[in-house]
Each structure stands twice: as structure tokens, then as C-alpha cells.
Amino acid sequence: MKLKTALALGAGFGALCTYADAFSAEVYSGYTLLRQETKDMQDDDFMNPGMGALARGAAMFTTPNAKGVSCASCHGADGKKLSAKRIAQYPVLDAKSKRPITLQQRVINESSERLGISTLKYESDDALSLEAFVRNIARGQEVNVQTDGAMTPFYEAGKKLYETRSGQLNMACSLCHDNHPGEKLRAQVLSQGQTNGFPLYRLATGKLTGTQTRFNQCFDAFRAKPYPFGSEEYTLLELYANAHGNGLKIETPAVRF
């Protein structure tokens, strides 16, 4: 009888520990799930296939418009006058609109308002290259998205979208990335859905890929209507996804499957 009680107590304690582990799981970058050869590819700037787009972004950054002005005129040729800490806080609350704005939207707005370049389309190769160049300046900085104060309602709305089922397969981001990270979906290991490496190079598509394009790819997989790039919904979803990885180091341009 005593033995049985001890066993039951032990089993109960064990179950409790597993339960606690599941909910105190720390955030980790998708990098930790990569094969060594993919890690090596990301870590070596000469091998990293995302670097081509970065060079394109760097060229855009320094190319002057008709009036001889470029991004570099204010931010320095290598963008070093930009604050890496600030870059790591995106999406931030926009001072004018009082709403969250993504880094790519900021880059697009600045190009349009200050340089008169209105041809940058959200998630286009050009916009992504420029965003990647800027975010790369903050490589190694910890993601630090505001979730409190005036940001709270937007963060909560983003969380709700993250947890809302949609599509014919009736899936939600959280069902895979919160409940099953590290487990195998066919040959692919599910990640926590962290965004600290975006824009990143996807080996599966052979392209520099933005956060919102990645959202589309998941929505496609579960046969759901994606939201438009730069929409309110995707901004909120990106806000939540980025904040979800607060504390992770920025890896742009990361390499992922």
C-alpha cells in the first residue's frame, strides 16, 4: 500500500513536471533546428544566399534620386546612423497614425515621402531587399517589440489572429507553432514560428522571403484566403509574431528550409 502511494505520488509529480515544462518552454530561434550544413551556410556571409539581395538593398540605399538625395544622405552610406536598437523594436507605434507600422512599411513610406520613389510595392523584391539591408544593421540585437501601454490592444488583436482557425483545413498559427514546435510534420521539423531571421532566404523556394509572404505560404497550405500585404491584419499578425520572439537575436538574412 505504501509502495503504491509512493508510486502514485511519484507519477503525479512527474506529470506535473512535464506539464510545467511544456508551459515554461523558452523561446528559441528556428536556427537551432537547422542541420549543420544550413547553419554553416547562414553563418558565412560569402555562402549565405540571402546576401545577394542585401547587396541589392545596399545599392538602393545609396542610389540618389533626381535631386541627388538617397537614404544614405541622412542615414550614412552604410546606414550606421540608424539605431540598431530601434530597428529591433519593429513593428513600432507610428507617431502620426498612432498605429503599429512594420519595418518594411516604414522603408516604403520613407522612400515615397522623402525621396519621391513611389514604385516600392509591399513584399516586392526591391522592398524586401531594402528592408533586409536595414534589418541586417541590427543583426545580433535582441528583438524588443513593445507589447504594453498603447500597444496592448494591437498586440492582443494580433494574438487573436494568431489563434484564429481558418481555411478548409481549419488551422491556426498557434496550433502548430505554440503546441507542437520541434515535432515532425512529414520530413520538416516545426519551428516556433519565430521571425528574428526575416527577411530570410528560403531554400524551399530559392527566394528572399518576407514575413508576410511566409504568412501567405502557411495560409495557402491550409487553403485559407490570405490577407493583402501591408494590410491591418498582417501588420497585427507580424506585430504578434515578432513580439513572440522578444529576446531572440536578429539573424537577417537567415537561411531556412
Binding site: T164, S166, Q168, M171, D220, F222, A224, K225
Partner: peptide, 17 residues
């Protein structure tokens, strides 16, 4: 997270056309 393979379609959300 297992998809419902025979759920009534009008109960689904944002299904692609």
C-alpha cells in the same frame, strides 16, 4: 490541429475560393 475532413463547409472561416 488535425483538419476536419468532413466539416460542414458553411462553418469554416476564410476558405480560399
Amino acid at each position: 490541429l488535425m483538419p476536419p475532413f468532413y466539416m460542414k463547409p458553411d462553418k469554416l472561416n476564410r476558405v480560399v475560393e
